[in-house]
Amino acid sequence: MTKQVFNFKDYIRPRFFPHIWCPGCGHGIVLGSLLRAVHELGLDKNEIVITSGIGCSSRISGYVDFHSLHTIHGRALSFATGVKLSKPHLKAIVPMGDGDALAIGGNHFIHAARRNIDITAIVMNNRIYGMTGGQFSPLSGLDKKATTAPYSTIDRNFDVVELAKSAGATFVARSTVFHANECKNLLKKGISHKGFSVVEILTQCPTYYGRKNKEGDAIQMMEGYKTNTVKIGSKKLEKNPDLIQRGIFIENTDIPEYCEAYDKIIETAMKGKA
């Protein structure tokens, strides 16, 4: 923990502000939480490589004063895998949107989890494709409106937490941008965790998702995160099992991390045992 007072200007590239996100977009709150997490962990900016894909979420990488790799749609985790495996001492953070993480990038998501490579995947779940103007995503869920679902969606949604758990992620957590402090704490734990960590953050898209689905403006959507979510195992779930749970779902330190496992392969190979 650093003693220095947090000032986000120490961690951003201020010339690109104000950012491109819409008024009330939750992504800026994710950005703020991430910067605070990095600050409180006392990480060296030179140690961090932030790798993103395409979409609103991916713009985070350009705003932060870390090594930043803005890649192609859905493939950020594969680029980050190359970064991490080649230089395991670097901290790999990968912010992704719905499509990046679970549509076009779904394969990379489950395989990064399976390998347990030490990457922190931040799934910024706003239940919509924002950059392209409001098409439904694999996180939208049933009976939602989108430009590509004018009569409402018939596609079910993934549960990011369940998917990450079953794919083998060794740290899985969920929070919302309403709970910005909790968000920061979970990011700290995710980044510190040795292995593949997934932090799902519910973040509002008032411009497309909110408007199309009559969920109101950013404020109303954040009120929704307050009322529709509870801490894991809350008693409120007995009355209302549909409430979304927040917190740490899995934190497993027994599974070998991929880069460390590969170091052992190198050791074996160098002894000529291959």
């Binding site: 986000f8 939750g26 992504h27 709150i29 703020g32 309403f178």
Partner: peptide
Amino acid sequence: LRCPDLAIQ
């Protein structure tokens, strides 16, 4: 914490 624009200190 909740300012999406990082506009408040």
